[in-house]
């Protein structure tokens, strides 16, 4: 049984580690400014934890086989432990874990503590069962008021988020079912939800944030590559949770401007 255990534990260790190292399944290609740092931090954590994982599992398998009970086994070493070893081990883990944490906090701080830059593209994301709507404030830079009483998903995007079209600041608001953003420019998101909690998750941007009813959450990111990116709702929101996906189209500034102008023109 000792050999079987050794084989099984080592096998599990090698197979598990192989698929990580081979990157058979891995983080999708990063397409935002924070992706590089997050991936770097991820890789660093992965290497450190991977070493501990492999070392601990191999040691476990080896010890169980090596010190299995058999007639010719060496006598047991009577000991209640080794305080010095414990102190060393504890200190090392503490430094490793807390150090890792402090290293990772910089990007977190950038993304969450610093306000969006003044030139950022304003987009308001509204989550509802089970769709996403994206609103652009238009030339006046102001979002018009919305109201739950005006919401009617069957009457188009504007009615879906309950936009009060009578209000002057709402006149130039553009509401779309697909998110368009220009490449290389910061996007200043305002996240809202009208029924339950949803979560705006774009794996390629390494970006995720819950949209919470009753809160307007501000967050920003900068896409770096033109392309279509899938987003998925990442917070359980009800029976259609799995269907609540969306598209983020990162386009050139020029394409973005013409798209926005076309939407504005449609409204008139």
């Amino acid at each position: 049984m000792g050999l079987a255990l050794l084989v099984v534990i080592w096998l599990i260790t090698f197979v598990s580690t192989y698929f990580f190292i081979a990157k058979t399944w891995w983080l999708p290609h990063g397409a935002s400014t924070s992706a590089a740092f997050i991936d770097g931090q991820f890789t660093l954590t992965f290497i450190l934890m991977g070493i501990v994982f492999v070392a601990a599992q191999l040691a476990l398998g080896y010890l169980v086989w090596k010190f299995r009970d058999r007639p010719e086994a060496a006598p047991v070493e009577y000991s209640h432990g080794n305080t010095r070893l414990e102190v060393i081990w504890t200190t090392l883990t503490a430094i490793l874990f807390i150090g890792l944490n402090l290293m990772g906090s910089r990007v977190w701080a950038n993304e969450r503590f610093a306000p969006a830059s003044p030139g950022a593209v304003q987009v308001e994301v509204t989550g509802m069962q089970f769709a996403w709507y994206f609103r652009y404030p238009g030339p006046d830079g102001k979002y018009g008021p919305t109201s739950a009483k005006l919401m009617d998903a069957s009457a188009g995007s504007e009615a879906a988020i309950g936009l009060d079209t009578g209000d002057p600041s709402a006149k130039d608001d553009v509401v779309a079912g697909v998110m368009y953003v220009p490449v290389g420019r910061q996007v200043d998101l305002t996240l809202r939800a009208v029924d339950v909690i949803h979560s705006f998750f774009v794996p390629s941007f390494r970006f995720k944030q819950d949209a919470v009813p009753g809160l307007a959450i501000h967050m920003h990111f900068t896409p770096t590559e033109i392309g279509d990116y899938e987003m998925a709702c990442a917070e359980l929101c009800g029976l259609g949770h799995y269907k609540m996906h969306g598209m983020v189209k990162v386009v050139s500034q020029q394409d973005f401007d013409s798209w926005l102008a076309a939407r504005e023109a449609e409204k008139q």
């Binding site: 979002y143 008021p145 919305t146 109201s147 739950a148 009753g214 809160l215 307007a216």
Partner: peptide
């Protein structure tokens, strides 16, 4: 603070 439905402000 909660969002006031009419003004959108907290």
């Amino acid at each position: 603070p909660t969002i006031d439905e009419k003004t959108g402000a907290y």
